[in-house]
Design a protein around this nucleic acid. Structure first.
Length: 650
RNA sequence: GCCACUGUGGCUUAGGGGUAUAGCGUCGCCUUGGUAAGGCGAAGGUCGGGGGUUCAAUUCCCCCCAGUGGCUCCA
């Protein structure tokens, strides 16, 4: 028997008899407890059963590594398919990939409910206990087609993959076999820590004209603790859900008589919204923005000119027929701002011209996508458009990126990254089809980002229809990525609206670039994120109720009124509860509204003209002279501090 | 828009073919109280809406509406 030399990383290469498997090598080198689920052989992911017959390198893939988790989840998708096909013999598996935090599998089958999901989960657990080996089988194309001849979806996958290695292997566990490239965990007992989470409808090939499929989602981890951690994370996210907190704090309401996706800002939410707006106005005045107000609707011809109707009509409300023409609700402010620009002749001395508007736009989102404040049909924002020459674009982008960074640090956001969003030349119907302009502007943005030294990722098919953009991406508590801010470069408006200026030579110059930017997202989405981020415990300057005064007994009403008066004079949002109730009860009641501070007034405070201040976590600072407290909270609010510094944290 | 699930007083919720729980909140009384439930009492619901089956529907069936999760889309 010939010997082979296997490089296992750490120390010298090991010698083994040819024919040994990758799994045996890993067991030999790393022992049983390595937690490996597969092997990396010469840099390629392989099953444990992969046979080694020449010199090579072998490394374990740990179950809790990123690669290992994908293998685990992919394997768990197979386990799911095994259970589903056993319980529902007519179900046809289609595809079942791993995704962040879990996996899904799409089946062509009748819809199932919660009971179905439970039954499937139970069956999966049976197969985990049975510990089926997941065995790789190599097949020729013909033999594979035979194996899956009753499943048109698998046949279609094979048709699409002729010449690729995908179609050459299948994995078998017990009675179940699935077309798959692998690799997989050695056996189903590795898949203990899973949970099925939900079902949904999906289309074959994500095409709504094709077959409707049942998608089943699950999550799978390498250990009990990892699964528990994830479930805790989901639970925590549930507690921070802006819909739940928004209701408790009375931030907004949605009434079916008004319509879905059309939130009403209640007084407390309006405070948040107007504080954000005030902050934006202050900041943007410093950057040279001028504010305007434009109508919420405009004529068809306007949106034809802007390109919205050709490229964006699906996202607009349907037209309104009037006696003098057809009108549309605006989905964006830009067309009207372009008209503000060309309301008079512009000179190079006017550029960059920065036109801002704080108002609402209306977008016709599909009813099923609407959700709380996160996805709405009326969007409030601090929108602005910058008209400038190509040479000025870099400076304006730099300013806006700095502005975004300043905003975010003031609001306490840290977990975000920049994304350069490019067009997709394959999808010319979605974009203005001018490849040279796309290439030039995309390159320009790339250079700007590089010179700013801001790290970013590039993603295709995320651009606006009129140009590339820089988006600022957030990760939610559940690990989902969402766009927050956006800075967009528009090369199309100048032609569509005939935007020109008189340059230094006196010539009429048509090279006007437009930057669309909304650094604070929409107020709806921003408040939703803020609420989730702070779990409703906003920094003092944002808190709808900054101070809740609580009296111990009716004897203290008068002093409470004085405290209220002093705080109001300093512009602090204060409320007083001097009702006939116990202090414990009042604290419990007001905690739901999450005031930044509670001020307790009793005999001690009255006699010494002080206040006792209670923080959100229960920490307390007693007998602060009233003047001192007012001065401290005033400074905290004026500085827009993210720290609640008056009471030491518990 | 599509799929699944859900819909009971302001909020959280029990129940289930014979018009319905409880807690919180609200109001009143007692208590004048020191930091996440002091006591007593009261008001408040045509059980999301409309049809159907039934002697009888909040409960079963159908259709709407809304919410939640997901698909698609997206700020």
């Amino acid at each position: 028997m010939s010997m082979i030399s296997v490089d296992v990383g750490a120390d010298a290469a090991h010698e083994y008899a040819s024919g040994i498997t990758a799994g045996e090598v890993i067991l030999n080198v790393h022992g049983k407890k390595s937690g490996a689920v597969a092997a990396l052989v010469d840099g390629v992911e392989r099953d444990f059963s992969h046979v080694l017959d020449s010199d090579c390198s072998v490394q374990p893939i740990a179950g809790n590594s990123e690669e290992g988790l994908y293998i685990l989840r992919h394997s768990c998708a197979h386990l799911l398919a095994q259970a589903v096909t056993e319980l529902f013999p007519n179900a046809k598996p289609t595809i079942g990939p791993p995704i962040d935090n879990g996996f899904y599998y799409d089946f062509h089958m009748d819809p199932i409910g919660d009971e179905g999901l439970k039954a499937i989960e139970k069956k999966m657990n049976e197969h985990v206990r049975a510990n089926h080996a997941m065995v790789r089988e190599e097949h020729g194309n013909e033999s594979l087609r035979e194996m899956f001849d009753s499943n048109q979806f698998k046949l279609e996958i094979m048709d699409d993959n002729i010449g690729h290695d995908v179609g050459s292997s299948a994995y078998r566990q017990g009675d179940f076999v699935d077309l798959c490239r692998g690799p997989h965990v050695p056996s189903t007992s590795h898949l203990r820590w899973f949970r099925l989470t939900s079902t949904s409808q999906a289309y074959w090939r994500a095409d709504s004209k094709r077959e409707s499929l049942v998608r089943i989602y699950g999550m799978c981890y390498a250990s009990k603790n990892a699964l528990k951690d994830r479930m805790r994370q989901i639970e925590e996210a549930g507690k921070r859900d802006h819909k739940k907190i928004g209701k408790e704090m009375e931030l907004y309401m949605i009434d079916e008589l008004i319509g879905k996706g059309l939130p009403v800002w209640l007084p407390n939410g309006e405070i948040l919204k107007s504080e954000i707006e005030r902050f934006a106005i202050e900041t943007e005045e410093g950057y040279g923005y001028e504010r305007v107000t434009t109508p919420v609707l405009g004529k068809e011809q306007l949106f034809e000119a802007s390109g919205h109707l050709p490229h964006y009509a699906d996202s607009m409300y349907p037209p309104m027929e009037m006696d003098d023409g057809t009108y549309y609700l605006k989905a964006m402010n830009c067309p009207m701002h372009h008209l503000v620009y060309s309301n008079k002749k512009r000179s190079y001395r006017d550029l960059p011209l920065r036109i801002a508007e704080y108002g609402t736009v209306y977008r016709n989102e599909l009813s099923g996508t609407l959700s709380g404040l996160l996805r709405v049909r009326m969007l409030s924002m601090n929108d602005a458009h910058i008209y400038c020459t190509l040479d000025q674009v870099a400076q304006e982008f730099a300013d806006n990126i700095r502005m975004v960074q300043d905003y975010y640090s003031t609001f306490g956001f840290e977990d975000y990254h920049f994304r350069l969003s490019l067009w997709d030349p394959e999808k010319t119907e979605k974009y203005i089809d001018q490849p040279e302009n796309w290439a030039a502007t995309e390159n320009h943005l790339r250079q700007i980002m590089d010179s700013l030294g801001v790290p970013y990722v590039e993603v295709v098919d995320e651009a606006a229809f009129y140009g590339p953009k820089v988006d600022i991406q957030f990760t939610t508590l559940l690990g989902r990525e969402e766009s927050m801010s956006t800075i967009q470069l528009d090369f199309a408006a100048k032609e569509r609206f005939g935007l020109t200026y008189k340059d230094e030579t006196g010539a009429e110059n048509g090279e006007v670039f437009v930057i669309h930017r909304a650094p604070l997202s929409t107020h709806e989405r921003f408040v939703a994120f803020l609420t989730e981020h702070w779990a409703g415990n906003f920094p003092t300057w944002l808190s709808p109720i900054q101070v809740q005064v609580i009296t111990i007994s009716e004897k203290h009403k008068e002093h409470a009124a004085r405290v209220e008066e002093a705080l109001k004079l300093a512009g602090v949002r204060v409320r007083v509860d001097d009702s006939d109730s116990t202090i414990g009860r009042k604290i419990r009641l007001h905690r739901k509204q999450r005031p930044a501070y509670m001020v307790i007034i009793g005999d001690d405070e009255v006699s010494s003209d002080t206040v006792s201040v209670r923080g959100r976590s229960g920490g307390q600072r007693n007998s602060i002279p009233l003047d001192e407290f007012v001065a401290e909270i005033f400074a905290e609010i004026a500085n827009r501090s993210t720290e609640l510094g008056i009471v030491p944290p518990e």
